[in-house]
């Protein structure tokens, strides 16, 4: 017994040292095995609290990088949104069959104007729809207020639209209301390049009674525009006696266009073939 006490007294530092080493080794092994709870870990209240404090400081210091990351993420999400929106946009096209009154079949394709002009004599717009959206040349372009133009040149994903504010554009229109005898009066619309709000209605029969404020709509006589799309209202009939021209105020403000619909007429080919036949 005494020898044991002597032994412990003599080697007390070594024994204490070995005890501590054994303890640390146990902790190491414990740390390497999974299903055991760990006392010595950064999840306890002391180290957790210290790390929490550090986080609140470093968070503040990292605001700049964090902002950059958020901006990048925003960019990514925005791009995704526009991508998805374009998917929804193209899916929104629908078919309207109106066979009882006008005997025509139309498909509406929506789009957005990416370039607009109204200050030249030959104005063209650009829309973000093209061949892959089913656009071909000679299709009607309208918006909720009325006619805008006719598609002209078509690329894969864009199309050029010949505006009604283009000297070479002619549009078949009629008065919206019948006169007393129950007749519609037809004419053709063109632009004299002077005022972007006013277009000229020509070739209206002399017997037609026209008063200021009468509504002009498309006639449906061409294969491009369906019948009954709004164009404008009669502004003045001063020149009627001299050159048989009536000034028409457009419903559309041609300077601020954005959302448009392109109208595809499925019967266009058929109509054109028929007309070719009569020419021969």
């Amino acid at each position: 017994m005494q020898q044991l006490i002597y032994f412990i007294q003599r080697y007390r530092y070594v024994l204490y040292f070995l005890l501590l080493q054994l303890l640390s080794l146990l902790l190491i092994i414990n740390n390497h095995s999974y299903h055991k709870s760990k006392f010595i870990s950064s999840a306890n209240s002391i180290s957790g609290g210290v790390f929490e404090k550090r986080k609140s400081i470093t968070d503040y210091l990292n605001l700049k990088t964090e902002n950059k990351l958020l901006i990048q993420e925003n960019l990514l999400l925005k791009n995704k949104i526009t991508f998805l929106q374009s998917k929804i946009d193209t899916a929104k096209t629908y078919t309207q069959i109106d066979s009882i009154e006008y005997q025509q079949q139309y498909k509406y394709i929506d789009g957005i104007i990416t370039k607009n002009e109204y200050h030249k004599a030959y104005n063209y717009l650009t829309i973000n729809r093209g061949k892959k959206n089913g656009i071909t040349s000679e299709m009607a372009v309208i918006n909720h207020l009325g006619v805008i133009g006719v598609t002209d040149a078509v690329s894969n994903s864009y199309a050029r639209v010949r505006s009604i504010l283009n000297r070479s554009n002619e549009l078949s229109v009629r008065l919206k209301n019948k006169d007393i005898n129950g007749n519609y009066y037809y004419g053709s619309l063109s632009w004299d390049t002077k005022d972007y709000q006013i277009v000229q209605l020509n070739d209206i029969p002399r017997q037609a009674t026209i008063s200021i404020g009468d509504t002009i709509v498309t006639s449906g006589r061409s294969a491009i525009f369906p019948e009954g799309i709004l164009v404008g209202s009669v502004k003045s009939t001063e020149l009627r006696q001299k050159s048989n021209t009536i000034e028409v105020q457009l419903f559309n403000d041609m300077t601020s266009l954005r959302n448009i619909y392109v109208i595809n007429n499925f019967h266009k080919q058929e109509i054109k073939e028929l007309e070719q036949l009569t020419n021969e």
């Binding site: 190491i28 740390n31 790390f51």
Partner: peptide, 10 residues
């Protein structure tokens, strides 16, 4: 405790 290493540093 702060570096989650069991008892290695000890």
């Amino acid at each position: 405790m702060f570096s989650d290493s069991g008892g290695v540093h000890a």
